Computed example of a mutant assay.
Amino acid sequence: MTSGPLIEAVGVSKTFRGGGLFRRGRPVHAVRGVDLAIPRGAAVGVVGESGSGKSTLGRLLLGLTPPSEGRILFEGRPIAGVSRAEWRRLRRHLQIVFQDPFGSLDPRRRVGAQIADGLAIHGLVPAAERAARVDALLRQVGLEPAHARRFPHEFSGGQRQRIGIARALAVQPAFLVADEPVSALDVSIQAQILTLLDELRARLGLTLLLISHDLHVVRHLCDRVVVMYLGRVMEEGPVRAVFEAPAHPYTRALLSATPRLDPARRTRRILLSGEPPSPSDPPSGCVFRKRCLHARADCAETVPPLAPHGPARRVACINEHALG
């Protein structure tokens, strides 16, 4: 175990090559030049509009997608190019809870068998003890041991997501990515699943990356927040600092669109012009410049570095007058 970050992205980019069988399309720049260090035990939220690269970043950190450039480090060591045996060990520590609780489970298999898969693959529990371990995992996520004998179609969406969480936790991971874990659920169920994730993180000492379009969720569950736009990180820092005093113009626009119950703390809505550019044809310089109210001529020429901005905070903007 190292004293540095649990997981780290160093200059990570991901480009997908477009096109079909007989034609070559334009490359899609999903993630571009991301540097991110996630401390052990932290809860980090990743926010941004659709197409900002949030889910791709999560998959890169898990090793599910190889980067086009840069490195992913787990406990200080690269995860690329390791032996099959070493990758199996790493795979146990890197787990995901998917967005779709209906599509993430095999409809032909009982849920107990699906939860037990990881235990068998990684040899964590003897075969004679797996049923008891599955029962304990079901209780841990608020379900009953008898549910192990049922099939996925017999459960509600919220219950299926609890099963997905139990399956991810079965192998005792160190790092868990929750990719929009409640967006497919009824509003009445969302708070229950988020509370469960928060309780499990505290109890088990998990390091959590929460991908969400809901800024309220990130504010209440996370220690730090990463704001992405068109594959780049615009702002990163402690949740309270970023939400109370957003520095980047894009962060301010996102937060201004979030409803607030306290009338005294409501802010003027910042309307961004147009739609986000295509990741296959990003603007030169600052990717946000075509929608930024503070854009200058040099914003088209310079890619703004993610530079320090106050304690434990970074912002990507070369226009000091635009920063909050």
Rank of each mutant, 00 (worst) to 15 (best):
D106Y: 14
R109A: 06
R110D: 01
R110K: 10
V111R: 04
V111C: 10
A113W: 14
Q114M: 09
A116I: 04
A116E: 11
A120H: 13
A120E: 15
L124I: 10
L124V: 09
V134R: 08
A136D: 12
L138C: 01
L138D: 02
V141E: 00
P145W: 00
A146D: 08
A148N: 03
R149F: 11
R149W: 12
P152Y: 07
H153V: 05
E154D: 13
S156M: 11
S156I: 11
G157Q: 05
I163H: 00
G164I: 10
I165D: 02
A166E: 12
R167L: 10
A170D: 01
P173D: 04
P173S: 09
P173R: 06
A174Q: 15
F175D: 14
F175C: 13
F175Y: 13
D186I: 07
V187K: 11
S188I: 00
I189T: 05
Q190W: 05
Q190K: 08
T195N: 13
L196D: 03
L196K: 04
L197Y: 02
D198P: 00
E199W: 01
G205R: 11
T207F: 03
L209D: 10
L209V: 15
L209Q: 13
I211F: 04
H213V: 11
V217H: 01
V217I: 09
